[in-house]
Simulated assay, not measured.
Amino acid sequence: MAQQISPSILAADFAHLADEAAAVADTADWLHVDVMDNHFVPNLTLGLPIVAALHKSAALPLDCHLMIEDPDRWAPGYAEAGAGSVTIHAEAARSPVRTLREIRAQGARAGLALNPATPVEGYTDLIGEVDMLLLMTVEPGFGGQKFLDMVLPKIRRTRALIDGSGVSVRLQVDGGVSAETIERCAEAGADVFVAGSSVYGAENPAAAVTALRAQAEAAAR
């Protein structure tokens, strides 16, 4: 699969989200939206009304990452609001199969996220229910954190599980992805990269996306 870049608006200027989305529209594949509720993670960001508004104004499909309690209740609503991808956390979902199927039924890509300490092996039976597995490469809750190298072996194991399943599933990494770390992630088997500070902290966000993609493609060959 082609490498994809999903810039995270968590690192963008929240007062000008439409402009920040437009800044990467010509070079990125997705626009990553971190939804945090100050319960599942110790931070509060944005919710369904902002996602619905972004869907109307952003050219890129929205890649919604729900770091919230009770995603079984809320996740389908994000797909209904127009998100192209909705990812729930395995640690928070009580009925993941049902919720993932409801997300797909609304026409969105269904994703399952795992925290750094959560083994992927406990979720191999769900591979057929997802379009994407997201591996956190930092502890969720805040942007700008340092990449956790301890997750690299897990990325490799997850890639092997996906390849052995015969199912087409994307492998996304989120946290600390930058020019210094993206090649290691791509070499380990990731093919979708969430990049926040390394994109929106750059002087030219669009150029930063292009440069990150080139690194990932070269490392994945």
Rank of each mutant, 00 (worst) to 15 (best):
M1D: 10
Q4W: 12
I5G: 00
P7N: 12
L10W: 04
A11E: 04
A11T: 09
A18K: 15
A21D: 03
A22E: 13
T27A: 00
V35I: 15
N38F: 11
F40W: 06
P42C: 09
G47I: 08
A52H: 11
L54C: 02
L54Q: 04
H55P: 03
L66Q: 07
M67Y: 09
I68F: 12
D72A: 10
P76W: 01
G84S: 08
S85Y: 04
S85I: 01
A92G: 02
R94F: 11
S95E: 13
I103F: 04
Q106H: 14
R109P: 00
R109N: 06
T124D: 15
L133Y: 09
L133T: 09
P140C: 08
G143A: 02
L152T: 10
R156W: 10
L161A: 15
I162T: 13
D163Y: 11
G166S: 14
R170F: 07
S178C: 05
A186R: 12
E187C: 08
F193T: 05
G196N: 04
A202G: 00
N204M: 01
A206Y: 00
A207C: 01
A208F: 00
V209I: 02
V209L: 01
V209D: 00
T210I: 03
T210P: 01
T210Y: 00
A211P: 00
